[in-house]
Computed example of a mutant assay.
Amino acid sequence: MGKWIFRVLPILYMGVIWTLSSFPANAVVELPDLSLDRFIKESMHLIEFAILYLLFVFAMHTTNIPFSKKINLVCAAIACLYGVADEIHQSFVPSRSATLIDVIKDVTGVAICWYFIDRASFQKRFPRISAFLRFLKKV
């Protein structure tokens, strides 16, 4: 049962991203300090697609498919491509914008997480991350 939760989470999360990017930027929350509001929302690009990548990695660890460098790269590529698709989607939403810098932030967040997963999985670094990934194999 637990493994199916990890397998469905990336799809559900993609739906959440798509839904939230269908609304104006201030539809969910708007902080009174506009510069802080903008900073936090711009920073979310780094975080939201990094989370998507991690959910793909976690889902792959619950399968019988060996987690390889190639699979790791595919997980990162899918998360990055979804970031591009989301930016294109936002370009059609009134009061939203799509910029190359947003795509760069999406890819940067994924790349940072990819680094840690790569080192934990294939170079015996970051033992806590490695332990969690091994735990997922047993779920």
Rank of each mutant, 00 (worst) to 15 (best):
F116G: 06
T99P: 12
I51H: 10
D118K: 09
S97M: 11
V8L: 07
L34I: 00
T108K: 09
G15E: 07
A111K: 11
A50K: 11
Y115A: 13
P66E: 02
G2A: 13
N72W: 09
L20W: 00
L52Y: 01
Q123A: 05
I104C: 07
I40E: 11
V28K: 11
L31Y: 14
F23W: 02
S43P: 12
V57A: 13
G83F: 00
K138C: 09
S21V: 01
L133E: 04
R7F: 07
Q90I: 05
V93I: 08
F23D: 01
I112K: 13
D118F: 11
V74L: 15
S95D: 06
L20P: 02
C80Y: 02
I71F: 08
M14A: 11
F58Y: 13
G109D: 13
K137R: 08
M60N: 02
F49W: 10
I117C: 15
R125H: 12
L31K: 09
F49Q: 15
M1V: 14
L34E: 14
L52Q: 08
V110D: 12
A25T: 00
K137W: 07
I104W: 04
T62Y: 02
A76I: 03
V74N: 05
A50N: 13
C80E: 12
I40A: 15
R7D: 04
F49A: 10
A59G: 03
I11D: 04
A131V: 07
I47C: 11
K138F: 12
F132M: 05
K124M: 07
M1R: 15
L31Q: 10
Y53P: 05
D86L: 05
Q123H: 15
I104F: 00
K137T: 12
S21Y: 01
K137F: 06
R125L: 03
I71T: 00
S43M: 14
F58I: 13
S97L: 10
L81F: 05
A25M: 03
P127D: 13
D37F: 09
T108F: 09
V29P: 10
D86N: 08
R128F: 03
I101T: 15
S97Y: 13
I65S: 01
R134Q: 06
S68T: 00
M60E: 03
I101D: 14
I117E: 10
G15C: 09
T63Y: 06
V103Q: 12
F67R: 00
H89R: 10
D106V: 10
I11K: 04
Q123D: 13
A59W: 03
F135W: 15
F116M: 06
M60T: 02
I117G: 09
Y82A: 08
V139R: 02
H61L: 04
S22M: 05
D118W: 14
T108S: 15
L81R: 06
I51D: 06
H45L: 08
K137Y: 04
R125E: 14
I47V: 13
S35A: 10
K3Y: 14
R38L: 05
Q90A: 04
R38M: 06
K69E: 08
R128V: 01
K105N: 14
G83W: 03
V103G: 09
L9N: 06
M1S: 15
D118I: 00
R128D: 11
